[in-house]
Structure formats: structure tokens, C-alpha cells
């Protein structure tokens, strides 16, 4: 986590995603839950792909932020602004505990020296990118 302002691309909340980013600013991870069938979707979509509802009425519900690593890579090129000083860094593909197949990719903030393996446990944390703007990331968890 960094307290320094960066010039990384900042998420632009839209009509659907605004609650997600409001919660993220408070370091709370939420997932969009379908108002019709209660399935989580990441990212949210105009349609719930689980039940087919095209008026899914997404509710952004707090989740545990806990999950397991399905894959990872090391980023070594600064293809986007504001990451050059972070290189190299690890990103992880995480399946959240709340639902099979509920996967998101974000940085793993444990540095380059930790050995990683499939199914390693992680929990969500946040990177503060600007005043009032934080994005989810992960840390290795004990359990």
C-alpha cells in the first residue's frame, strides 16, 4: 500500500460501478450481486449471465476478500502510466471464496521474493492511488 499520490490510471466510476468504487475508497471489497438470482458477477454487466436477467439490479455486497491463487505473472514493462517505479511486480488471478469461478486479477503486494503456488490463500487489501481513490489488491493470507 502506498500513501504517495501516483499517476496510475484512475478508475472512472460509471452509473453501475459507482458503489464498488465508493466501497473501495473505504477499503471494502464488494461484488455485484444479481437482484434476481443472487449470483455474483465480476465485472458487472448489463445482463446477469447466470439467470439471463437484463435488469439485474446489481447490489454491491461486501465480500470476505478471501480466495485462492489460480495463476500469477510478473509485470516487467510499464505499459501504463505510473507503474514504472513499481516494476517488477506480481499480479494474481484469484478465485474468491464466495462463488466458484468468481475471479479477479489484481496486484499481489507481498513483493518479488515470496514463492507462490496454486491454491495459495490470499485476502484483499487496497492501494490508495489518489485522495478518495483506492483499488483492490491482494496479500498472502495465513489460512
Amino acid at each position: 500500500m502506498t500513501d504517495e499520490p501516483t499517476s496510475r490510471p484512475l478508475p472512472v466510476p460509471d452509473a453501475v460501478s459507482a458503489p464498488f468504487w465508493q466501497a473501495a475508497a473505504c477499503h471494502e471489497l464488494t461484488m455485484a450481486q444479481c437482484g434476481n438470482c443472487s449470483t455474483f458477477s465480476y465485472p458487472p454487466d448489463p445482463v446477469c449471465l447466470a439467470c439471463g436477467s437484463f435488469e439485474p439490479g446489481w447490489q454491491f455486497v461486501p465480500v470476505s476478500g478471501k480466495g485462492r491463487i489460480l495463476s500469477w505473472t510478473v509485470v516487467r514493462q510499464a505499459l501504463i502510466p505510473g507503474v514504472a517505479d513499481l516494476l517488477p511486480y506480481v499480479t494474481v488471478d484469484v478465485e474468491l471464496d464466495e462463488q466458484p469461478g468468481l475471479r479477479m486479477v489484481a496486484r499481489l503486494l507481498d513483493g518479488m521474493d515470496v514463492p507462490l503456488a496454486l491454491d495459495d490463500r490470499v485476502e484483499a487489501c487496497f492501494e490508495d492511488l489518489a485522495p478518495g481513490v483506492a483499488v483492490p489488491a491482494f496479500r498472502l493470507a495465513d489460512e
Binding site: 496510475r8 466510476p13 509485470v75 501504463i80 511486480y89 486479477v105 489484481a106
Partner: peptide, 10 residues
């Protein structure tokens, strides 16, 4: 890209 690039994955 709010679901990708914002988290450093691109």
C-alpha cells in the same frame, strides 16, 4: 479497463 488497468493488469 476500470476492472483491469486500474488494478495494474493490462
Amino acid at each position: 479497463e476500470q476492472w483491469g488497468m486500474a488494478m495494474g493488469h493490462f
